Amino acid sequence: MTELTVVHMVRHAEVDNPAGVLYGRREGYHLTSLGRNMAGELAGYFAGHDVRAIISSPLERAYETAEPTAKQLGLPILSDERLIEAGNRFEGVNVNRNRMILAHPRYWSWYRNPFTPSWGEPYTDIVDRFSGAIRHALTLAEGERQSSFRTSCRFGRCAASSNGARWRTIRGAGSARYVR
């Protein structure tokens, strides 16, 4: 019987972003007090599991989300650049306070190909990057669970079409399983 290795992809907890900018890969964004509570709840979720590795994006918000779980389980937090947010030309733009800013003519040239997308990192590159990170995680935790704390929430949809790899979303758990 083949052992199932479960890889949980976890989005960071709530971030303090009073200006409402699209922070993307920018450093200096930390968790709110609610975000720290969310990270603590997540540590409680993983407490009953045999987690072998905790891997985080290098960004503070992802590391801070992973920290309570790492402390509770006595594991180091490994950093993997491949788990970082997708590249986006709108980074730094205040899109959360005024979504209509995205319709401004100065950005029209960025919308020439929504399937790539022309305003950021190509979807295929994101899939390749995350697939590599997950393959690495699988080697660290073969037959066990491992958790990756990351900065982007759209990976499950991208990975579903990646090179024949099969992903199954676990409803309500906020994670996906890689099925070989």
Rank of each mutant, 00 (worst) to 15 (best):
L4K: 04
A53K: 12
W110P: 02
A47R: 13
G174Y: 06
N17A: 14
V95F: 00
R129D: 07
E144L: 06
E121K: 13
T5R: 12
E27H: 12
S161C: 04
T151C: 09
S79K: 10
R145G: 00
E67L: 15
R11Y: 08
G20E: 13
G44V: 05
R129P: 13
T5M: 06
Y23S: 03
Q72P: 00
G172V: 03
S131L: 07
G172A: 02
G132I: 15
C153A: 02
L4V: 00
P122V: 12
Y123F: 12
F155Y: 03
A86C: 09
P122N: 05
P18V: 08
N17K: 04
G92S: 12
R112M: 00
A39G: 05
R177Y: 02
D125N: 11
A43N: 01
D125I: 12
S162K: 07
R112W: 03
G120D: 05
R99Y: 15
L31M: 12
N113I: 08
A47K: 14
R177D: 11
R129E: 00
F90L: 01
T169H: 04
G40I: 12
Y107P: 11
Y107W: 15
A137N: 06
I170S: 11
A53V: 08
N88F: 07
W167E: 10
W167A: 14
G28I: 06
Q72G: 01
L4M: 06
L73K: 14
G156A: 00
F149P: 03
R177M: 06
F115A: 12
G87P: 03
R36L: 06
P58T: 11
F90E: 09
N113A: 13
I170W: 15
E85F: 04
S79D: 10
S162A: 13
L34Y: 13
R89Q: 01
P76I: 06
L75K: 04
S148V: 03
L102M: 15
F115Q: 14
L83Y: 02
V10Q: 04
E3D: 06
L34N: 12
F46L: 14
F115E: 07
R129F: 01
C153G: 10
R177I: 05
N94V: 15
V179F: 05
A47E: 15
V10P: 07
R129Q: 13
P105H: 10
Y63M: 02
E60L: 14
H49S: 09
L102F: 12
A173E: 15
A39H: 03
A159V: 03
V93H: 07
G35W: 05
R82P: 02
S79G: 10
Y107V: 07
G143L: 09
K71I: 07
A86N: 01
A160C: 08
A133Q: 07
D125Q: 14
N88H: 00
R36F: 03
G24D: 01
V127G: 01
Q72C: 03
A86H: 05
R36N: 11
G143I: 11
S33T: 09
E64K: 00
P68L: 01
K71M: 10
I101K: 15
N94Q: 15
A133P: 05
A133R: 13
A103W: 04
G24M: 08
E142L: 13
F115L: 10
L73Y: 10
L75A: 08
E81G: 11
